[in-house]
Design a binder for these strands. Structure first.
Lengths: 137, 137
DNA sequence: TTAAACTTGAGTGCTCCGCTCAAGATAACC
DNA sequence: GGTTATCTTGAGCGGAGCACTCAAGTTTAA
């Protein structure tokens, strides 16, 4: 089954939370885990990846936490997918030039385009969705 | 790593071969395996799936083989991906209405669109590629 | 020094991938 | 009617990754 892992979904949700809080100080993993309903220890692993990839900064010790390493305009969801999913590679680099590889290549390009939205854009979209929910109450 | 399995690639290549031969009788698995450079016994498994899905017909016994169950105009590559990859499900059906799920939904749609090309179209494209190769010799 | 936070490494049960092996069942052909 | 070429079915196997959990760390504020 071609699907996106929970790891990736969890990671994007967590980074989205950091993005919504950008400039507002540190966020702690237990709060994010609770808010987004993600197993805390699993989220720790995910944050490790993000820290190692330089997307997120960590501060250790009491009153520690995480924050974005760059502004939301400079982070794309594709960056996150690469780190969390280990890349997107529908077509191998050494494949013969046949119609099937060509098709897979097109699929890969369209997927990449979809994910090349910035975190800033995603935050805006998320707020729009929230307002929509408010409107319907 | 988000990627398409060899199984899927092999299967599409094999169905492409059947499609190119459509109306020309049966093809045998050993010939397809040799032509497309796929392990024969593995290709047998793949053909079983395609037969069970009603995409391909098999004829047993000596002089047996495989053929398409429908004309290439009626088979889409998405059909094949569903059977061989077990579906494409970037966004779960019970996910909250957040910006991340929405994005995954868009990715899924664009992937589906790319794969909704018919086998007939793929055959045409493959022939065009072959002619192009000839031209460059 | 204590407690709250991140860090690191290991382990676990599960499923799938990419095959291979070993028998079958079926049908054409001599 | 037996051989032989084909498809069919079921099993197994090593490796990888998923989705976690467990168990210790280390660091820092208070």
């Amino acid at each position: 089954m071609l699907s996106i892992s929970s790891k990736c979904r969890y990671g994007i949700l967590a980074v989205l939370a950091l993005g919504e809080n950008h400039g507002g100080g540190l966020m702690q993993i237990k709060d994010i885990a609770t808010a987004k309903n993600v197993p805390r220890q699993y989220l720790e692993q995910i944050f490790n990846r993000l820290v190692n990839a330089g997307i997120v900064n960590s501060v250790r010790g009491k009153k520690g936490g995480y924050r974005l390493a760059h502004s939301p305009e400079k982070i794309t969801i594709f960056d996150l997918v690469e780190v969390l999913e280990g890349g997107v590679q529908l077509v191998g680099i050494n494949e013969p030039q046949d119609a099937v590889s060509e098709l897979f290549g097109r699929a890969q390009v369209s997927l990449k385009k979809t994910f090349e939205i910035t975190l800033a854009d995603l935050i805006v979209r998320q707020q729009a969705l929230l307002e929509n929910v408010m409107f319907h109450i």
